[in-house]
Design a protein around this nucleic acid. Structure first.
Lengths: 253, 253
DNA sequence: ACAGTGGTTCCATAATATGGAACACTATAG
DNA sequence: CTATAGTGTTCCATATTATGGAACCACTGT
């Protein structure tokens, strides 16, 4: 390397190997790594050996390198949707209590939206089963949030019409998403189901990335457009006030 | 150092720092790391700088070290429940189709069981809302599996009685779990809800760790104990046959 | 038997990481 | 306002440490 010498060649190289391994979809062999990184076999072997001893990498049956226990463990603890659930559940409860309506938490992954937590309204309405159900992004408040903030991408193909109000034109959807970003929250009125309205706002990671959304939903009979706007602000406020307290803390493993 | 010299001091130390950061619940400062690992400040600084440049670690606003983008990205891609959902959905579908009953996928985290996927029976029965519902381990087939194979631990406190058949004695539960391990699947009959029966089997990671469970459930009117046993075997078979294809080949151990 | 893989170990070499010291900065205390 | 104790970064002479070529082992296919 022609770079100014930092005294970190070994770490730089080992890190590059590690990252290569983590980002590969197919587990690379030692020789492959050696070749692509232009590090002699002997050095590569020594380095991977060290990483392996530390548990940062592992070898599969074929001897190819994959993420080690330390990292899978980290991924497990870190990511699991339930960390989000744990962190946000109190917000859902507060919102459900103050509005009297149902509150949901959703994330996006593998191109699908998934509801992962819910606190029911004290009204008994619409307790349908969400597990395993595919709710379209374009027709839900949660989905609009995920789309608007880049946590999901607009799926290819036709935008399914679920009610006469559903937004089915892509240009109109884009305008709507721009609108969502401007306001900071998303609203649906009769777009998913006749008589169902909802409002949602984004959950941000420390670095600003949107990783999920929280919604309040109920029957249009009880919630006016004005109500929804107010609730939108409340959701934003509640999420935000939680995140300030939270800085570095994560649950124990 | 008195260790046998491997020529990997730098990598070993940097790895130790990285691991420390990943496993800490509260983000450590440079000086903390320097002290606990007995590495001089200057060296620690240089090493962490290298890891930071590579994106393996990051600093939060306070300057304390947390996992970097590469790793959060990895965690995100790796772990997310939805990877399990994606991998197992076809199994649920196959099972739901062949039995005609409802199939569920559950994981355990933060001390709670969570249903993360479902394929409905073609009978229209019991489509209740699972999202956000806490289903007790000891009274469900999925829960018994997660307990039996160490994917969850028996919660402290009383074992809630949900029906006359619910197992509420800890010794009896332990015996039941032993029984589950012996058979390889778990059954409930009227233990969660009168008239509801279910059978579940474990999903294993490559390394053998149980990370989730799949169940078939339905009304006792349709499913006899004998049926449940047979279905249990089928679930095990389906999960297993999926996993072999996934590994690619079965080499000599 | 041989050539072509993939991987490990050895060891002389010098390039590289090392760590003490000096420096910069921010609080909190006196 | 200076003192002090806490962060973290940079510098640089030093020798400890990582390096990489070569020899070596183990397989596999020809």
């Amino acid at each position: 390397m022609s770079e100014l010498v930092n005294g970190t060649q070994a770490i730089d190289r080992a890190s590059a190997l590690l990252i290569h391994i983590l980002e590969s979809s197919t587990a690379p062999l030692l020789s492959e790594l050696s070749r692509t990184h232009e590090i002699p076999k002997s050095t590569t072997s020594r380095m991977l050996g060290a990483l392996e001893r530390q548990g940062l990498v592992r070898r599969d049956r074929a001897g190819a390198f994959i993420a080690g226990d330390v990292l899978t463990q980290f991924a497990r603890s870190q990511n699991h949707d339930s960390v989000l659930v744990a962190r946000m559940h109190s917000v859902l409860e507060k919102l459900a209590l103050s509005t009297g309506e149902t509150s949901n938490l959703a994330v996006s992954s593998n191109g699908e939206m998934r509801l992962i937590d819910q606190v029911d309204s004290h009204y008994l309405l619409g307790a349908t089963n969400w597990v395993g159900k595919r709710i379209p992004y374009h027709a839900s408040a949660l989905g609009k949030i995920l789309l608007a903030y880049g946590a999901a991408i607009i799926p290819a193909g036709k935008l399914e019409r679920l009610t006469p109000k559903t937004i089915t034109s892509r240009p109109r959807l884009l305008i709507e998403l721009e609108n969502v970003r401007k306001k900071g929250f998303a609203i649906i009125i009769d777009e998913l189901e006749e008589g169902l309205v909802a409002v949602a706002a984004p959950i941000r990671e420390d670095d600003g990335r949107v990783v999920g959304a929280i919604s309040i939903s109920g029957p249009s009979a009880r919630l006016t457009l004005r109500d929804l706007g107010k609730i939108g602000e409340v959701i934003i406020h509640e999420i935000h006030s939680l995140q300030v307290n939270h800085e570095g803390k994560i649950g124990a493993a």
